[in-house]
Design a protein around this nucleic acid. Structure first.
Length: 203
DNA sequence: GTGCGGATGAACT
DNA sequence: GTTCATCCGCACT
């Protein structure tokens, strides 16, 4: 049967304000279809990375390397980065080409293909740790660095609007995690999560 | 060629 | 609450 839910259109990602896009991504569904295995869930926690002026961003100061090149691509693709040699961190690239904005997806609430996600994480029961935290989340969905640059309007990794709307009063905004090195930019409230949801990396 | 730091997670006490 | 595994990519020589 045809999927009745709508993928977010390219122009959703290509707007200028990465913090607005971040907030609107809360409550949307991130879904991966890896070799026919479909897994996914509702986005519960994100962080905004505001391009070349953001010290916490890999693209700070306009730095371009092989790795960060993906962030300079068009809004609507994804940027997957390997951190600490172990963890795959999944980002949504936003804004126009050559403007390296990105939204780090930090946590989702597992909904689709839970058995498969448990298998990938070698777990028996659903716990918040299954998909809370950027490394765990990517691992559950089977996302790897080789998926970097995938088009989110495509059929492998995509984001759907399933009609859930998170009102402003349900959104907590706070400092980002793990970016203390970024000086005053570390104080920016660019982390957003859904109030009261269990699937959050840090309350 | 080489050294070092990192957008973390899990397993401990 | 704390500690530590683990390895790629960047910056520099």
């Amino acid at each position: 049967m045809k999927n009745k839910f709508q993928k977010l259109p390219e122009n959703f990602y290509q707007r200028n304000d990465v913090t607005i896009i971040s907030k609107e991504l809360l409550g949307k569904f991130l879904i991966s279809d890896i070799d026919g295995i479909v897994t996914g869930g509702m986005i519960t926690e994100v962080e905004a990375y505001n391009g070349i002026s953001d010290k916490a961003s890999h693209a700070f100061g306009g730095r371009r390397t092989n790795r960060t090149e993906t962030m300079y691509g068009k809004g609507g693709i994804c940027y997957v980065y390997l951190c600490y040699g172990i963890h795959h961190l999944f980002n949504v690239v936003t804004n126009k080409i050559n403007i390296p904005h990105a939204v780090l997806i930090r946590a989702i609430e597992p909904i689709i293909g839970i058995d498969e996600m448990l298998k990938r994480r070698k777990k028996i029961n659903i716990q918040p740790t299954l998909t809370s935290g950027p490394g765990s989340m990517s691992s559950s969905l089977g996302i790897k660095t080789s998926d970097s640059g995938s088009d989110l309007c495509g059929n492998r990794i995509y984001i759907e609007d399933r009609g859930i709307n998170i009102s402003d009063s349900k959104i907590i905004s706070t400092k980002r995690v793990g970016v203390d090195y970024a000086g005053k930019d570390a104080l920016l409230k660019y982390r957003f999560y859904i109030k009261g949801n269990k699937f959050i990396s840090k309350p």
